[in-house]
Nucleic acid binder design. Structure first.
Lengths: 125, 125
DNA sequence: CAGCATCCCTTGAGATACTG
DNA sequence: CAGTATCTCAAGGGATGCTG
């Protein structure tokens, strides 16, 4: 793939492709939920325990959006007390790979970036 | 790399790694600017023309943050009228690869996702 | 247990006007 | 040309309380 073709994938259609995905995963909790469910299917409360800092409200909203997008499946069992299990779908699992690439980039270049920020702030203070 | 190790890259440190990168690139214009600069170094106005919809203010803010992070270099020439050129740094270029992966994922799975959304909305209307 | 409803505050981002 | 300064609005997200 040429350089032009690569960036066209991002810039194509006025950037709508990249916008759609960032609108989905760019928020605070989505990728954390997906990564947590990669281990195993899980109940609501367990998910909340494994994701430090997430509120009931935000976990609920995040899961509903993921279900709507077809990345997570929701299974409610007719029991008392209620039991609901969430799991990644096949499509949801395919998101892990590019997300991990991004995380690798973040971990690898974070020192450079922090150094650059300090230098910049020093120059412009 | 095991499944556990992969997702730990995302979830590690309470999700701070993924948060840092999403705070950087998750906004509306950053990846578009980076992708546009992948072609060639470019002046402010040219950049604005090539990125449909970006305002002067947002382009300015986006470029300053990218410069602060060390992903974009800014070169001002002492001329009248002023000329300023922006270009990707070496670190900035390394971001293209994972970003393209993400865009590929978006393009590939967008039909699935839109179908899932319509079905979800139909069920819950 | 697994949530929804409400309130509130902060941030992202657009529009407009001005400047070295 | 290449920005900055203000203003404004909408969305994201936290805290709290309630419920089938």
């Amino acid at each position: 793939m040429s350089r032009y073709e690569r960036t066209c994938l991002i810039r194509g259609d006025g950037g709508r492709a990249i916008r759609r995905i960032l609108d989905r995963i760019g928020n605070k909790w989505t990728l954390l939920v997906v990564a947590t469910l990669d281990d195993q299917r899980m109940r609501f409360t367990e998910l909340q325990q494994r994701i430090p800092g997430v509120s009931q409200r935000m976990l609920s909203l995040t899961l509903r959006n993921l279900e709507r997008d077809g990345l997570v499946s929701r299974t409610a069992y007719a029991e008392v007390p209620p039991r609901v299990e969430y799991a990644l779908t096949d499509v949801g699992r395919t998101l892990i790979e590019p997300a991990v690439r991004l995380a690798e980039w973040a971990v690898e270049h974070d020192p450079d970036i922090e150094r650059s920020q300090r230098a910049f702030d020093e120059r412009n203070k």
